[in-house]
Each structure stands twice: as structure tokens, then as C-alpha cells.
Computed example of a mutant assay.
Amino acid sequence: MPTDSVVHQLAIRVSNRLRDERLMLVTAESCTGGMVATAITDISGSSGWFERGFVTYSNPAKSEMIGVPPDLIDKHGAVSEPVARAMAEGALRNSRAQVSLAITGVAGPGGGTKTKPVGMVSFGWSNRLHTSVETKIFKGDREQIRVQAAAHALRGVLALLDEQEH
């Protein structure tokens, strides 16, 4: 499946910034299933700025691959800012990258609850010194939610890189 053009354009912008600043990115994706990693690696030369990607779709994968504490998932649920923070920080600890992004959410069409509806996605971004988290609720079908989440995650990397400059 081709990557959405907005995601592709954002991936190019992120890639240019990472290359210019000589930084590497690591991704930890759940509901997007590697969509951000795909968008980045669709760009020629991406090995210069993309270190690795984790697709931690199951809760055990989040714990086993990037060190998210199981009790954190039990307490807050996989779709939560504490888990997104742990994913972003764990991805950095388990890579050689300097910048990370994490995505965990409910893409639908099932799986939503009253408190965590379909379209709810939690994000984390980290640069080893600072981690920020955010939760958004996107509208649309499964594919639209996943594309919006991937685009938002890439915008967050750009914002993190902007913060580093100041």
C-alpha cells in the first residue's frame, strides 16, 4: 500500500532535518503497524537518519522489545500517555538513535470503549533529555486514523527538533 502523500511529505521534511542535524530516529509503533518506518525508509538514503523501528503491537511486545513495564500497561492501558512515554524512552534505550517517536492507539473499527474510543491515539517523542506526550482523537475509518496518527507523529518529531534548536 502506498504511503499517504501528506505522510510522505512529512517524512521527507523529517528526513532532511535529521540528516542536516546528523541525528538518528527510532520508531515504536503499535496501531500504525510500521507506517512511519515505511514512510521514512521509502526515502533513498534513509539509513543515514533512520536507526530502527519497533512494531510493538501486542502488550507483551511493548514489554519484551522496548521495556514498557507490564504493570504500567495494566494500570493505564496500552493506549495512554504513560505507556506512550515509556515506549518513546524505551525505544531510545534499545537503539543508537537520539530521537524517538511512539504511537499507541485504537484504530478501529472495534476495540474502542467509552473512555478510549476508536480514534484515540497517544504519542510520545523523546530526545534523551526531554520526553513529551500527547493524546489526540482522530475521526474516520481505520486507514484514515492510522494515516492521521502517522502524520501527527512526524509533525511531533519536527516540533521536537525545533525545540532542540532553542
Results as ranks from 00 to 15, higher is better:
residue 15 S to G: 15
residue 17 R to S: 15
residue 18 L to G: 12
residue 19 R to I: 09
residue 25 L to R: 12
residue 26 V to L: 10
residue 29 E to D: 06
residue 30 S to G: 07
residue 31 C to V: 06
residue 32 T to Y: 05
residue 34 G to V: 03
residue 40 I to G: 04
residue 44 S to P: 00
residue 45 G to A: 02
residue 51 E to N: 09
residue 51 E to I: 04
residue 53 G to M: 01
residue 53 G to C: 01
residue 53 G to S: 01
residue 54 F to A: 01
residue 56 T to Q: 03
residue 57 Y to I: 03
residue 62 K to C: 05
residue 64 E to R: 07
residue 66 I to W: 01
residue 68 V to W: 01
residue 69 P to A: 07
residue 69 P to C: 02
residue 72 L to F: 03
residue 72 L to N: 03
residue 72 L to V: 05
residue 73 I to C: 05
residue 73 I to R: 04
residue 73 I to E: 04
residue 73 I to V: 09
residue 80 S to C: 08
residue 80 S to R: 09
residue 80 S to E: 07
residue 82 P to I: 08
residue 86 A to C: 05
residue 88 A to M: 08
residue 88 A to V: 08
residue 90 G to Q: 05
residue 93 R to Y: 07
residue 94 N to E: 13
residue 97 A to G: 13
residue 97 A to P: 10
residue 97 A to C: 12
residue 100 S to G: 08
residue 100 S to N: 09
residue 103 I to P: 07
residue 105 G to M: 14
residue 105 G to N: 12
residue 109 P to F: 11
residue 110 G to K: 15
residue 111 G to L: 15
residue 111 G to N: 15
residue 111 G to Q: 15
residue 112 G to W: 12
residue 113 T to F: 10
residue 114 K to M: 14
residue 116 K to C: 09
residue 121 V to P: 14
residue 122 S to Y: 12
residue 124 G to A: 11
residue 124 G to I: 07
residue 125 W to L: 13
